[in-house]
Design a protein around this nucleic acid. Structure first.
Lengths: 185, 185
DNA sequence: CGCCCCATGTAAGACGTTACATGATTGA
DNA sequence: TCAATCATGTAACGTCTTACATGGGGCG
């Protein structure tokens, strides 16, 4: 099997389609009305992405066209699509994922439980905890190193970044505790 | 004057070059070693971006090549570059900026004070506060609406997003207080 | 002499953005 | 019937990614 490359948007689509079969238009609405607004709801992004996924054999579309009904094409995951989604979620987490692709990490986590089971969710959380724990002190060093030369707004901006990572770390630990509690019951 | 479009990376470069004239290589090092790692340090991104900025007349490069020295080209902002940077920072903040381009907003804020003065920093913070204050309740509604149907990991992911915005709002207010205090002194 | 770092670039390809285009159906 | 919404797509364009390419200089 050739190694597939799936765009960020593609992965989001796979995850959503696993939950519920949907048309391109349905997916656009999800992106434009829910917290997933971080993804583009433009037809120029979604329809080509769906086409690519279908060409890769990850989803399959079936045209619904009863009379008195608008033509629409509903997509579903194939077995390969499910497998690929699982692989994406299970991919080991490296620092670059956390720094440059946090959105993607959170998306992977959001889909993790139903797709790959709670153990995958926990694995993701643990890696995230590890990466954050090693990264945050480095940011603190940068802050104290640049304190003298940076303008106040620059310093504040850096502090904002640090705080957001610290907040995320706290959330990560809370989430881990939630899973621990859940396991025991 | 034709309306210029400058990429996100381009704005980051402008902001950095205003602080200190630098070569492409210097800039790459900044991106690879500091908290600005969110931006690409790849030559394939930076050198073309610098070329574009120069063609737009926003920066000007001068080749330094003494003997016993490697050839390197140092870039500086032009007057137009400074003006354009200022315009970018002052651009009114809309919700889409906050949801899809928070990184860019923070970058604008980081550069705001030395480039456009503390009043611009405060304006940015106030807009940010407004947008966050109206957005966060909507996220809470989505959470309680989907509570029943969402898998735990999905719910947690949404909670993470909410928390990060709440954390940011708190930072925004702290930062505003910092500026208030500073003004009085 | 060979290797690594400095320093600059280019080329192919993938992806998203913006804008345009089409046609059917619902509802006022 | 006219506008809005449903529903799908395409085309041009800009930008980033990845990978490759080139050469000089320091250093062992």
């Amino acid at each position: 099997m050739p190694e597939l490359t799936i765009s960020n948007l593609g992965c989001a689509l796979l995850g959503l389609l696993r939950q519920n079969p949907a048309s391109g238009y349905d997916l656009r609405k999800i992106f434009s009305t829910t917290a997933m607004t971080t993804y583009s709801d433009s037809p120029g992004a979604i329809y080509p992405a769906l086409k690519r996924l279908q060409q890769q054999g990850l989803i399959r579309g079936s045209v619904e066209s009863g009379s008195g009904m608008r033509r629409r094409q509903v997509f579903r995951l194939t077995a390969r699509g499910t497998a690929e989604l699982k692989r994406w979620i299970r991919r080991p987490l490296v620092r670059a994922d956390v720094i440059r692709g946090l959105n993607e990490v959170m998306l992977r986590f959001a889909f993790s439980e139903p797709v790959a089971g709670p153990s995958a969710s926990v694995r993701l959380l643990r890696s995230l905890e590890t990466e954050l724990t090693s990264y945050i002190p480095e940011l603190h060093e940068q802050l104290s190193a640049g304190k003298a030369t940076m303008p106040m707004s620059g310093r504040l901006a850096l502090e904002s970044g640090i705080k957001s990572y610290e907040c995320l770390l706290q959330w990560t630990r809370d989430a881990l505790r939630t899973y621990e509690r859940n396991k025991k019951e």
